[in-house]
């Protein structure tokens, strides 16, 4: 099946019970949903479980989807809610102890300190609301307005949470002894070598 299928066609096919459309639906959004879940839940196994729940929930409620709006924020709203529920049921925030294997980016640095890992650890110390804002804004690359819609809160609140998230993570990195200027220089070197 062509991947050029529009969202409306996709939803129509899913509602008609067409397995091919349902598969396409999952494949189109699984990276986005799984990414959010893994960021929020830290554990790959949990992220896969919750991702499945998100898609099942989406299929159950697909008839309520407003065709005028894009699917992506609608799905992210479901995913954010499911992650929140899962974390509440788990009874604690995601712990950074079991992050390494799941969170490491594919391109690992040869430096002794892996700053990506440090970012994950810093992220894991944030409050749930800050985490959601941060992931939606940075990883999903949504605007403040879109994040506010998904989290169902005022834009001003999102801005405050985002700023606090940045500050807390920056503070965490400072305490960990990361030199921002050095990191930025390393990044510039990486970009230059990629270009060459």
């Amino acid at each position: 099946m062509s991947v050029d299928v529009s969202e409306v066609e996709l939803v129509r096919g899913c509602l008609a019970g067409e397995v091919a459309y349902q598969r396409l639906f999952v494949e189109r959004f699984e990276g986005m949903i799984f990414g959010l879940c893994l960021r929020m839940l830290s554990r790959r196994h949990d992220a896969e479980d919750v991702s499945q729940e998100v898609f099942l929930r989406a299929f159950r409620n697909l008839h309520r989807w407003d065709g005028e709006r894009p699917l992506r924020p609608w799905l992210l709203t479901i995913a954010a809610n499911r992650c929140r529920t899962h974390l509440e049921e788990r009874g604690r925030r995601p712990m950074p102890t079991d992050l390494q294997a799941d969170w490491l980016p594919e391109r690992t640095r040869t430096d002794s300190r892996d700053d990506a890992e440090e970012i994950q650890r810093a992220f894991a110390t944030l409050r749930l609301e800050y985490q959601q804002c941060f992931v939606l804004f940075y990883q999903q690359e949504l605007s403040v307005e879109e994040v506010a819609q998904i989290l169902d809160c005022p834009e001003g609140t999102v801005k405050t949470w985002l700023h606090r998230a940045r500050k807390e993570m920056a503070e965490y990195l400072r305490k960990r002894g990361l030199d921002p200027q050095q990191e930025l220089n390393d990044h510039s070197l990486d970009l230059n070598s990629d270009m060459n």
Binding site: G31, A116, I119, L173, E183, L184
Partner: peptide, 15 residues
């Protein structure tokens, strides 16, 4: 700025 750059590299392995 460091955070901004580092987060841009945030990659999650696919499901």
């Amino acid at each position: 700025q460091q955070l901004h750059v580092a987060v841009a590299d945030w990659q999650v392995q696919p499901p």
